[in-house]
């Protein structure tokens, strides 16, 4: 049942030009960064060779690409999550899902999974871009793996919060703005807390992503991402249940 709903979400996503435009744009931007870094790497290569422990191609080229990918994801997620729930309220199609013999948990998880499959595709494109480096040399696969895992976990957090905000309103535009606002706030939470070790810093999603970006799978960050996603999925389920109970 979760798969049925996920499949429907994907279908609705791909019949609109939004998904294709998004995939094309993210690919364009990342390739641009990729080529820029590649150029810089080739120029610096001779100098890098003289250092005792030189940074490899993966560190110089791929890490910045994934860092940019996280920002692009942050900007684009609200546009993709806004219609998940809000449009169902608006078009009265939520009734179809709720009248069917499907639990609310399955509805929420199906929608979450549908969008995650889409983001998996976007991440996969980025990974393939990175793998093209293999044509000219070797790569640090560990670093690539930690970046991939990090980006997927980050996407899961973004989607879950977007899903929740979208369930609060029947106006997709408000859902998009609300999600963007919160994601930006969670990003700059890092900067606001100027002195290191402040509790607020821990809420910055991109700060947690940084450790994955550096190739460090930090268990604290891992647990934070998973708990963050779960929290907002549960909040969404509760919200849908509340609609039935309180009207």
């Amino acid at each position: 049942m979760i798969l049925t709903i996920a499949k429907k979400e994907l279908k609705l996503l791909f019949v609109s030009p939004l998904a294709w435009t998004f995939l094309a744009l993210i690919q364009l931007m990342l390739t641009w960064v990729f080529l820029g870094r590649l150029d810089a790497f080739l120029e610096l290569q001779s100098q890098l060779m003289q250092i005792a422990n030189p940074p490899g191609a993966t560190e110089v080229i791929i890490v910045p690409v994934f860092a940019v990918a996280s920002i692009v994801l942050l900007m684009a997620t609200p546009l993709l999550t806004m219609r998940l729930m809000a449009e169902e309220w608006r078009n009265h199609t939520m009734v179809l899902l709720i009248s069917a013999p499907v639990s609310i948990t399955a509805i929420v998880l199906g929608k979450f999974l549908g969008l995650m499959v889409f983001f998996l595709l976007a991440v996969l494109l980025t990974v393939m871009l990175s793998l093209s480096l293999l044509m000219g040399g070797t790569m640090d696969f560990g670093l690539l793996l930690s970046n991939t895992i990090g980006l997927l976990l980050l996407a899961a957090c973004f989607v879950s919060i977007g899903l929740y905000i979208s369930s609060l309103t029947s106006h997709p535009a408000i859902a998009a703005l609300g999600t963007l606002g919160i994601l930006l706030a969670l990003w700059i939470a890092d900067i606001v807390a100027s002195n290191a070790g402040n509790v607020i810093q821990n809420f910055s999603l991109l700060r947690h992503y940084e450790s994955f970006n550096r190739g460090l799978i930090d268990s604290f960050s891992l647990v934070f991402f998973v708990l963050f996603t779960l929290t907002f999925l549960i909040l969404t389920i509760r919200r849908l249940d509340g609609e039935r109970l309180h009207g």
């Binding site: 429907k8 279908k11 609705l12 078009n91 009265h92 199609t93 939520m94 009734v95 179809l96 009248s99």
Partner: peptide, 15 residues
């Protein structure tokens, strides 16, 4: 056991 047609038909117009 239930089939339900609400006041506003719940249609996905893009499909």
């Amino acid at each position: 056991y239930i089939g339900y047609l609400p006041e506003n038909p719940p249609l996905y117009k893009e499909l």
